[in-house]
Design a protein around this nucleic acid. Structure first.
Length: 485
DNA sequence: TTTTGAGTTGTTCGA
DNA sequence: GTCGAACAACTCAAA
């Protein structure tokens, strides 16, 4: 191991805000040169897919945590803002760096940007190397027997289980040799990633601890208390049955390989629950697989027939959905949990998304845009793939007749009504058998619970049976047979 | 090339 | 109240 002197190499930190199990960082360290960690806030390149409000709040915390962890190991984090096509080559020039190491990104805009940056660096004789830091498998590694990409989840997951297991995670470096001269950095505070006027982030602060330490703590808590019952309780929004790792995984504060191996090692005795959890990690992989092979996925339906779907333009209904005022308690609870905490239980994401798309016939892109702005785990691959799946226009999509009944779903997965009570407090005093359908309650029962429909809580914006019939008719209008007739 | 079985997460209706 | 079938047609993946 030589001493760290001379020109540095750049570790370009992106969605891999961690020191553990980071192949890009390891490769930078392996050169023996001083390492300069750099993060670029590149809203220019991301365009419409720049991080939304909740994601920016998270990013601030995660960068602060990474900066502190790096400082403790002797290396300062350099922050720069602007188009990476300018910032990265300029930094290489300024520091004399001959190499740049980065974790790969898979968003279409990021792929284009990274190609451009590589070309610009190449002109200057600087090399850039990409590493797999965000996924278990590269999207192009998993292939069907004929060599093509998968379009159906189950065979994709089987191929992943058959492929060689992801490598064991590597420990964090004890020390990171800093360059003798460190270029100027922006102040994180000056980026104003956190809201101030008004400060709406109180619920986020309560719920989350961004950063690598927070990610590890969340994983440990999940392994200790919920993994062994994951298969049965993961659908219960009223109970802490899920891992809540999604934002940590999105920002790369923990590697999917770390999560994979921890689950396998800790839950060996509860095979079914471990397998159910690993399959969720593979859904994340599948989303990236789809985005890689179908880069139009965030904007356009994967099934072309849906271009002719009779979507409605209904700003008032969209607003009611966004604000949790649809009159369907399980839907409103989910939308308010999202607004308050930046996160929503997966079961409720399906219910609320189905409601927007099928009961209200509002384009899935509107829902995806709202989630993009409000979720702390907003991820282009997962968000786009999941909305398309619910809408029926995606890969392996839900059949046309699968229209969630928000009353039945509420009764089935929030049987005591405690999830609704938590997020829709004006209904808290209704008994469990009425809380998911307050409009059917007798006047006396409503009065005893202090509920006045239309005043303390809205009437349903649409009637379920009528909305279901309307959705089925809309779907029939784009079916192949109908189109040919 | 052709064939075959299958496809995350559901609801409703009628027996 | 419970239970099983119907609900389209299509595409995918593998044999």
């Amino acid at each position: 191991m030589g001493t760290a002197t001379g020109a540095p190499v750049i570790w370009w930190v992106r969605q891999d805000l961690r020191l553990c199990d980071n192949a890009a960082l390891s490769a930078a360290l392996a050169t023996g040169a001083p390492v300069l960690p750099v993060f670029v806030l590149d809203d220019d390149s991301a365009g419409a897919w720049a991080p939304g409000g909740a994601s920016r709040w998270w990013l601030h915390g995660s960068l602060a945590a990474l900066s502190a962890a790096l400082a403790a190991r002797g290396a300062p984090l350099v922050l720069r803002r602007g188009d990476s096509r300018k910032v990265i080559p300029a930094l290489a020039e300024e520091t004399g760096a001959q190499a740049v190491f980065a974790g790969r990104m898979y968003e279409p805009w990021a792929r284009q940007r990274d190609r451009d940056v590589a070309a610009l660096l190449s002109e200057r004789g600087v090399r850039i190397e990409g590493f797999r830091t965000a996924l278990l498998f590269e999207p192009w590694e998993i292939r069907t027997t004929t060599g093509g990409p998968y379009g159906v989840y189950t065979p994709f997951s089987r191929a992943c289980f058959t492929a060689s297991a992801p490598a064991q995670p590597t420990p964090p470096p004890a020390r990171i040799p800093a360059p003798a001269s460190v270029p100027a950095s922006d102040r994180l505070e000056d980026w104003q990633l956190r809201p101030s006027r008004p400060d709406w982030a109180g619920g986020l602060r309560e719920a989350w601890q961004p950063g690598e330490a927070g990610a590890s703590a969340r994983l440990e808590a999940f392994l200790a208390s919920a993994l062994h019952r994951y298969e049965s309780l993961r659908n219960r929004p009223d109970l802490p049955g899920t891992s809540c790792l999604s934002p940590h995984l999105h920002w790369g504060e923990i590697s999917p390989a770390s999560v994979w191996h921890a689950a396998v090692a800790s839950g060996a005795a509860q095979g079914a629950s471990v397998e159910a959890f690993l399959k969720e990690l593979l859904w994340r992989e599948f989303s990236h697989h789809l985005l890689w092979h179908r880069p139009e996925m965030p904007e356009a339906p994967l099934k072309p027939a849906f271009a002719a779907f009779p979507w409605r333009n209904d700003p008032a209904a969209l607003r009611a959905w966004q604000k949790g005022r649809t009159g369907y308690p399980i839907v409103d609870a989910g939308m308010r949990q999202l607004w308050h905490s930046g996160w929503m239980h997966n079961r409720v994401r399906m219910i609320t998304a189905s409601f927007l798309v099928k009961h209200l016939l509002i384009p899935w892109q509107e829902g995806a845009a709202w989630f993009w702005d409000t979720l702390v785990d907003a991820d282009l691959a997962a968000n786009s793939a999941s909305w398309q799946w619910v809408a029926g226009c995606g890969a392996d999509a839900a059949p046309y007749f699968r229209i969630f009944n928000p009353i039945l779903q509420g009764a089935k997965f929030d049987p005591e009504g405690n999830y609704v009570r938590r997020w829709v407090p004006e209904l808290a005093r209704l008994p469990a058998d009425l809380i998911h359908r307050p409009w059917e309650a007798q006047p006396l029962a409503l009065a005893e619970a202090g509920v006045t429909l239309g005043r303390t809580y809205p009437w349903p914006v649409v009637e379920h049976a009528a909305a279901r019939a309307r959705a089925l008719a809309a779907l029939a209008s784009i079916s192949a047979e109908k189109g040919a007739a």
